[in-house]
Design a protein around this nucleic acid. Sequence first.
DNA 1: ATTAGTGGGACATTTTTAGTCCATAGAAAA
DNA 2: TTTTCTATGGACTAAAAATGTCCCACTAAT
Lengths: 346, 346
Amino acid sequence: MNSDFLEAQRKLVPEMMDLMQQRYSALKLIEMSGPIGRRQLGQVARLSEREARNVLEALRDAGLIRIEKEGATVTEEGRQMLSSLRTSMDDWSGRNTLGRYLGQTIGIRKVIVVPGDSDANASVKAVIGKEAAEQFISLIGDGRIVAVTGGSSVAAIPPHIAKFPEAERLKFIAARGGVGEDIGLQANVISALFAQACGATYSTFYYPETLSEEAHEVFRKEPAALEMMALYEKTDCVLHGIGDAKKMAAIRNSSKEELELLEQGKALGEAFGYYFDENGNVVYRLRTVGIQTEQLEDVPLLIAVAGGASKAAAILAYMASAPRQTILVTDEGAALEMQQIVRKNT
Amino acid sequence: MNSDFLEAQRKLVPEMMDLMQQRYSALKLIEMSGPIGRRQLGQVARLSEREARNVLEALRDAGLIRIEKEGATVTEEGRQMLSSLRTSMDDWSGRNTLGRYLGQTIGIRKVIVVPGDSDANASVKAVIGKEAAEQFISLIGDGRIVAVTGGSSVAAIPPHIAKFPEAERLKFIAARGGVGEDIGLQANVISALFAQACGATYSTFYYPETLSEEAHEVFRKEPAALEMMALYEKTDCVLHGIGDAKKMAAIRNSSKEELELLEQGKALGEAFGYYFDENGNVVYRLRTVGIQTEQLEDVPLLIAVAGGASKAAAILAYMASAPRQTILVTDEGAALEMQQIVRKNT
DNA sequence: ATTAGTGGGACATTTTTAGTCCATAGAAAA
DNA sequence: TTTTCTATGGACTAAAAATGTCCCACTAAT
């Protein structure tokens, strides 16, 4: 498959991909806009005059365009090249630009879109996990404390973590105490998986999801709880999933009162025990020992993972108030749906 | 097909290919030579310390190698990448290095090797023609007089000539007067095809192949002949094929004396009416109005086209005395065979 | 202890690239 | 026909990036 090859290439010569996309899309623009000049092309392709000039000269040297007094035109060869590259490039560069577009509109650091839709094809989750693992490894820097949440998306990350320099110094913790969900997808278990993959250490903390106010107070003063809360203050990285509010509430066997609160508040998304409405307002939160939204602001590396068209609304809900440094790794299904929602609302 | 994609890409971002090949072969070396250091890698891969360093760092950032105190090792991911790229890259870069190797040993400017073997697959000739056309277009510069010879290889070039700036100023001529061969492959006809493809002009000159010495003398003084000879002096580019000596002699219905001369002189290759032995010595030449080997030395752009394993010996014979500025466009079949012959002789 | 490797830091120098302006030449509009 | 607009290509400076070359600290094997 060509896309495999493109992926391999992206890894091998990443600095060239920009250039390639630049030239490809310039060629496409030239094809569409007939004879077009350097400055005009620059404007429509968001290139400076010089950049546009370089691109044009490169394309000319490759024999793909003809540069004449009235502007640049595609040659026959250029047309052939366009048609032979179109499918794979459009696919690839479409996801790329979609990611950039979403990143800008949502107002976060980066959005990575992998091909496919996790709703339709479960194996896409693995690709999301792989991408997230790469981001994590390359950006963790000299961070030490990593908080992870539960969920299948986050669970897809550890299998793709290869040992990297100083991986052992990391300490993984659950971003939120809690039991009750599927054991394999609990934050505690996942943090252990991460620790194993890295040869690192982890701390666990179990916390009953539903407690009376009094019991809660008592629990909060437990030494183990205090220790965890101290760690949350020093967290260097959070890897978290995003859930659909209703589904999460159902999974958690929430009480009638809770369900009503979520219903009234029009909760859409959920992340680390917080429920958000479409504007990112916190509608409800689980009382548990966990990282707080205020603390997130000071965490340098925030990686959110969630895929599938059905999660688009939930993702947008959380992202409406997500810290700017957030990186979202999602799939095409969710990304396209998000794009539609965003467009509808403007 | 991946190779199509690679080809398209080579056109779109030619500057990437070097880098890609550099990194790919470095990765391969690292895989083979176990943990290897920056300087050692530099030596074996012919990179400066800095270049090796850059490559290593790029591979490390891509997660393909691990750099540790004892040197660089390939990661699991790197191994996967190698196996997924191996076939297409080795194919491509094999031809590339083969071309470089031949260029150096033969002592000419450049050798371009296209995939396939014209002996086995006639469509390979078209690829050779396309490549030759590209070289011609990109290197002709502000040359004006272009001399072409006959033969199927040269005839494969004009179909791939797209109009380029100032193509009309060119003048195509036959590198050698002569009739008797297949009409469609005669130099005169081919020069007309070139002219048509470029929207340029051409001059023809017919010259009987076999003439008595006296008739020859008379012919040489014809105004048309003198005009052609004047053009040969000013030739800016020669596009020529290379023939197998015996086959050419057969095609030309050579006389017994000629055949004997060729036999005795161990003629192997033929080009513009000259026959060469394995050391590049001229064994015999047709008496005709045509470009002379001495004149070739002053022609800035010399492009030789010939493919097929069966022509390997002939190509090497001519190349043994070919001017240094010659560019050879050939196919894998001929190139591999040439490599074998060269190795046997050393 | 010595030697031959390793990676990584540092720095001057060269090379490449980017930004900008201008001259000039066609094409289209007036 | 003249004017205006937009085109390319040349030229130049400032800035950024790549390169060659050291040195240093460290490690493992001799």
